[in-house]
Design a protein around this nucleic acid. Structure first.
Lengths: 163, 163
DNA sequence: ACAAATATTTCGTTCGGCCGAACCAAGGAC
DNA sequence: GTCCTTGGTTCGGCCGAACGAAATATTTGT
């Protein structure tokens, strides 16, 4: 499938370089739009960046204790209390008793609420699917592979920056 | 290139549906990572969301007056003064005299500073290019097309949400 | 049983960023 | 020239969200 062969100094190399150039550019634009879309959704539900991030953490890890959240978000314990209060007030999460340790508080997503939220994505998803019609299934497979690789690269880059 | 043909009720349709399913999933992950990467960069330079957005506006529109910025960001005029003060203090933009109207203030990017900032992206860009080696040039062209289409869909979705 | 450790909340404070109102210029109309 | 409008800034106040320290509740260790 892949071409490889970097040592080619001719017209093919030029074409590839030019393609990469365009890819970076369109990738930049795509990133910008993605961020905008994301923050538009957040704004729509009255969530700030911290709350958004917390919901993502809960999505990925399942229920977490306040201490875990403090660690993962980088907030002080006292701040987590307020954060969870807000999420509860808005209906996105709730406190539940820890099964064994009564000191701890588990915070879990309100699946119901998250589900309702999916309505926002519906016409977007429809647009996406419609837009995909101009791609063959093989091309979509390529896109999947591509997005996977890019996601990984960005993840490591983000980690590098945060350290 | 494109397959079309939706009315096929057999195995091919199943495969395509399943592919779309995976595409949505990997797209979701990619979006999340993109947002993280973006905010990691912003944090690294001590920029908040508003400042980030403003730099993006200046990037896209070129120099803007304070009034324009107020309109485009949705901030009150008084807030724009503070915003531009911060951007100036951090070296990302500067006030310049309006050529004809002495009342107005043009805000323009500091290209120098933006350039220095590109250093942050360098090893990231290298990773990207390296990661692209496993794709043929045709596949990259497909990725470009795909990203372009997705960007457009997200742009309209974001606009729909914001209205 | 009691002391030390652990998890979370409460309380009081601080800080950043936004706003409205008042306040200067600097145009533009008459 | 005078007056009104327009573009920006200054000032004072406000609010959300973060913090540290102290308080509370529960578990663990001896």
């Amino acid at each position: 499938m892949s071409s490889g062969g970097e040592t080619n100094g001719g017209a093919q190399g030029d074409r590839r370089a030019e393609t990469l150039q365009r890819l970076m550019e369109v990738g930049r634009v795509h990133s910008g739009v993605t961020v905008m879309f994301h923050s538009a959704i957040a704004a729509k539900q009255g969530l700030n960046a911290t709350e958004e991030k917390t919901l993502d953490l809960l999505e990925r890890h399942g229920p977490l204790t306040a201490k875990d959240l403090a660690r993962l978000t980088g907030l002080a314990p006292a701040s987590v209390t307020g954060l969870v209060d807000r999420l509860e007030a808005k209906g996105f999460a709730r406190r539940v008793k820890h099964p064994t340790d009564k000191r701890r508080v588990l915070v879990e997503l309100d699946r119901q609420k998250i589900g309702e939220l999916a309505v926002f994505f519906e016409d977007w998803a429809r647009d996406i699917v419609a837009a995909c019609e101009e791609f063959s299934t093989e091309e979509l497979e390529t896109a999947i592979r591509f997005l996977t690789v890019m996601a990984e690269a960005q993840r490591t880059a983000a980690a590098r920056l945060s350290s």
